[in-house]
């Protein structure tokens, strides 16, 4: 846990160089792995960003700066994702599309989940935030992913997600599995049942068990 506190400290100083160097040092010295970094350090750091300032506008600004630093850190981790994949001798079994619904701007969680899929042997395409709705629906039968993972942070976007899932059911190949996740469902688990998804995922373990079914079938 000491790494989390140290990282938070660096983040509060908004020191990007130090943050990247600190994380890369953790990974290269095997003090933690990618999943551990995402789960125990980066995610809590993002969720725990407290702002004691009275002026809410400065708070929002600080949040954006810190999120940008974490984003750089996550991107820098990709070589370690590949390294871990090689070490595990995992083959690529399938294809996943990871996205956020239109108007959803909180995409870092989805970005991390894309790496989880890769670690589980699924080739993940991270489409990013604010996915153009019609373009994605139009292309989904050509892409033919095994999994579509949708990350929702703002609970308002549950509305469009519900519609997105309903449209995917009509357009996507029948074996495409739909997974939902994100803080909108963490805050109120009742909201999960409101969407006709196949799976709800919160942790790396959830992704692992969801993908393992496909993995066993294709091995």
């Amino acid at each position: 846990m000491e790494y989390y506190e140290k990282f938070t400290e660096i983040l509060e100083k908004e020191n990007k160089k130090e943050a990247v160097e600190f994380v890369l040092e953790l990974l290269s010295s095997k003090k933690t792995d990618v999943v551990g970094l995402y789960t125990e350090i980066l995610t809590p750091a993002l969720n725990g960003m407290a702002c004691s300032l009275k002026d809410k506008r400065i708070c929002v600004w600080k949040e954006h700066v810190r999120t940008a630093i974490v984003r750089t850190v996550v991107e820098c981790c990709y070589p370690y994702v590949l390294e871990q994949l090689n070490r595990q001798e995992t083959k690529i079994y399938g294809k996943a599309v990871v996205l956020c619904p239109p108007q959803e701007h909180h995409d870092l969680g989805a970005r991390m989940v894309a790496d989880y899929f890769v670690l589980c042997g699924i080739d993940a395409v991270f489409v990013g935030s604010d996915t153009p709705y019609d373009d994605f629906i139009g292309a989904v039968d050509i892409i033919a992913p095994d999994f579509v993972a949708i990350s929702v942070s703002n609970f308002y976007n549950i509305i469009v997600t519900k519609k997105l899932v309903e449209d995917l059911r009509k357009k996507a190949p029948s074996n495409t599995r739909i997974i939902i996740g994100g803080s909108a469902f963490v805050a109120n688990s009742e909201n999960i049942s409101k969407i006709n998804a196949d799976y709800y995922a919160h942790t790396f373990e959830d992704i692992k068990s969801i993908t393992s079914v496909l993995k066993e079938g294709r091995e």
Partner: peptide
């Protein structure tokens, strides 16, 4: 009612 969701 198509959807009824709560934040918390």
């Amino acid at each position: 009612i198509n959807l009824d969701i709560k934040k918390q």
